[in-house]
Each structure stands twice: as structure tokens, then as C-alpha cells.
Design a protein around this nucleic acid. Structure first.
Lengths: 191, 191
DNA sequence: AATACAAACTAACATTCGTTAGTAAAATTA
DNA sequence: TAATTTTACTAACGAATGTTAGTTTGTATT
């Protein structure tokens, strides 16, 4: 299945954004990576911002789909938090090329995309928080500060986005990796 | 104790770098925050890079001093990992204005400062890893993958750097905050 | 008050940047 | 094969950027 030129441009741009950030990446940088001149990029993309929007909203909607799936799922309530964490690990690992961008480069989104991204993020975090509250009520996790718990869980997962760090453990079987991550997190929060 | 103009410039620059990143922050932005013209900044700083170097190496050396103190400390071996985590929390909380910058803006450092920063970081992570290995040998923590453990611990602490997130819990007494963080982490790794 | 120094301002520089417009070349279609 | 469309190139634009140089203003010292 041959990728469109636009897709190739987006891929190379994503790598550059991950390496040096959106603002420090020039259109010339992206063009060089694609083996063309900067002005030629405009045959395939509308603007630099078009690239960023596409990349960030795309990954945001993947996480969004994942959490919506959990929220409406057939899992037992006691399992939902764990499934959400597993989902987060899987989306992160399977989208290593772009996930890192959600850490900071969203700041460079222009409206209305920025508002859209923030709304998706808020929904994600609120849903995650709800799952924690639910798990506390079900006595699956201990009764500690929800906000600290939420941030600890999500933060402890974020190193996965960093390809240099994940690379050090990527030869481990994914399900074992997931298992070790879950053990860390669940041991940290369980009753 | 009256702050020098240079200190004021650095402070405002740090805020802007945290808000929008080094590359997306202009000298004009920094000048406006200080109530002067961009050209006037050069009476107090050498260059934009001078600002970044000062901020990043300053915070790097604080973490460095902290970890060196633990490595050479009088704490019992069984306590050293916990003390290192406490140190990390304290340095982070006490340097909220700059800690966030070590996440990504170090990428914009020019040589030789960049190499210096990376060397300090490597020493920090290597020492932390050594403390984990030590704790495993002493049966304080379980025998899991060291790399995953190291990354989980450090990553779970990084949300503290984000002033917007930390703000939500900052009214909690620091020692209680520390206690909850340690519980999460130590429950996650203990034998 | 005069002098020296520090700091803010204005003007300008060279460079870079994202993008547009027109041209040339390559690819596709009939 | 010829015509058409797509894509890469060149040239240029207007704006922004970090910084330097010179001037003016403010502050400190004698």
C-alpha cells in the first residue's frame, strides 16, 4: 500500500517535531527530509500549522477513542481502570511517532484546533479520574488523594512516549512490558 | 535583598520558556515582560543562549548536588533510594520556575553546554539506577526490570514540574504530599 | 555642578522564516 | 503520441528574529 506524498511529509515532520520541537523545525528542514524544496511542500500540505493539527488531533482522537471504548465497555467495573491503563500503554506504544508531541507541542496549535485538542484532553483526564473514583468506591484502590493518584498514574506512563527511553526496553515482549507497568501502578494504588 | 536586573530578566525568560518553549519565545517577548526594549536586554545578558544556559545548568546542578549528597550520604543503604526520591521531590517543588525546562528545552542548548547538561543528567540517572540496584540487592525492592523501574520512578515524578498540575495539590502540606508520592512509588516497587 | 558610568532607546543589519507566484519537469490521462 | 495535470524548482515577498551600534536619558560619584 503506497503512502501518499502528504503522508510521507507528515511522517518526516513528526520525526523532526519530536527531535527538536515544532517551533525549532523549519519548513526547509521538513523539505530536506523529503528530498524536495520547501516551496514544494505546499503541493501536499496547506501550511506548517496544517501539519501540526493533523498530527496532534490524529493522536488525540486515538486516545479519545480508546477511553470512550473503556467508558462504554463491557468490562466489569473493577477492571475498567486497569483496562484504561492498558489502553494508554497500547496507544502510546503503537503511536510512538506522534505521541511525544502531545506533551508540549500542542501549545503551538492555533484556534480552533487548540481548543479542540484541550477539550479532548480534558475529557480523557476527567474520564480517567472518574475511573479512579469508581475504583476507590469499589475498594479496588486505596482512598488517597484522587488528583495525586491521577497524575501519578498518567505521569508514570509518559516516559513510554520518549523513543530513546522506550528503545531500551522495547525488546521485552509487549505483554510482559504491560504487565510490569501495571504492577508498578497497581501496587502503587491498590487498597 | 534587591534582585539584579539580570536576575529579573532570567526570571521572566524562564516563565516564558515554560509557557511557550525557548524557540517560540522571542527576545521582544522577554523585553516586554521586563518593561524594556529588546535591545536593552543586552546590557544584562550576553545572548538568548546565555539565558538558556544559565537557567538549565543552574537547575541541573541543583539536582546534581542533591544526588551527590545522597550518594555520599550518611543514610543507611536501605534508605538511600527513598531519600533520593524525596530529594527529587524537594528540588522539583522548590524550583518550579525552572524544573520544567529540563524536560525538553535542553535540546536547544548549544555546545559545550549541551554536553555538560547531558553529562550531569547521565550521572543523575546512573546514580539513581545504582540506588535501585542496591535496593534490589538489599531486598528492599522487588527483582523487576531495572530500566522499567528507573523510568517509572522518574517519570511518575515529572508531573510535579508542571505548575498547572502541581497547583491543584499545592495546598496540601508538603510533607503529606511527599508521603503520598512515596507511597505510590514504594508500593509500586517494594518486595 | 560636572563628570563618568549604566541603562534605556532608536535605527539598522543580516539572516531566517513561512509562504506565494510563476516556470519547468515529471507523471498521468486520453 | 499529445494534452493535461501534478509536482518540483526558482525567485521573491513581507515579516520576524537576534543582535550590534550609536544616541539619549538616568543615576552615581566627586
Amino acid at each position: 500500500m503506497k503512502k501518499s506524498k502528504r503522508e510521507l511529509v507528515l511522517e518526516e515532520a513528526a520525526k523532526l517535531f519530536v527531535e527538536k520541537g515544532y517551533s525549532a523545525t523549519s519548513m526547509k528542514d521538513i523539505a530536506v527530509r523529503n528530498g524536495i524544496e520547501a516551496a514544494s511542500l505546499y503541493n501536499h500540505i496547506k501550511s506548517k500549522q496544517d501539519i501540526l493539527q493533523d498530527l496532534l488531533l490524529s493522536i488525540a482522537y486515538k486516545f479519545d477513542a480508546g477511553i470512550k471504548n473503556i467508558a462504554s465497555s463491557k468490562f466489569r467495573k473493577e477492571e475498567r481502570l486497569k483496562e484504561a491503563i492498558k489502553m494508554h500503554i497500547n496507544v502510546s506504544v503503537n503511536n510512538q511517532d506522534t505521541t511525544y508531541l502531545i506533551l508540549q507541542d500542542w501549545k503551538h496549535l492555533e484556534e480552533p484546533s487548540k481548543a479542540e485538542f484541550l477539550e479532548i484532553r480534558k475529557y480523557y483526564q476527567d474520564t480517567f479520574r472518574d475511573l479512579i473514583v469508581e475504583a476507590k468506591e469499589l475498594d479496588v484502590v486505596r482512598n488517597a488523594n484522587t488528583e495525586i493518584m491521577l497524575n501519578n498514574i498518567l505521569s508514570s506512563l509518559r516516559w513510554i512516549y520518549n523513543q530513546d527511553l522506550y528503545e531500551n526496553v522495547s525488546k521485552i515482549d509487549l505483554s510482559q512490558f504491560e504487565s510490569e507497568m501495571l504492577q508498578f501502578i497497581f501496587s502503587g494504588i491498590k487498597k
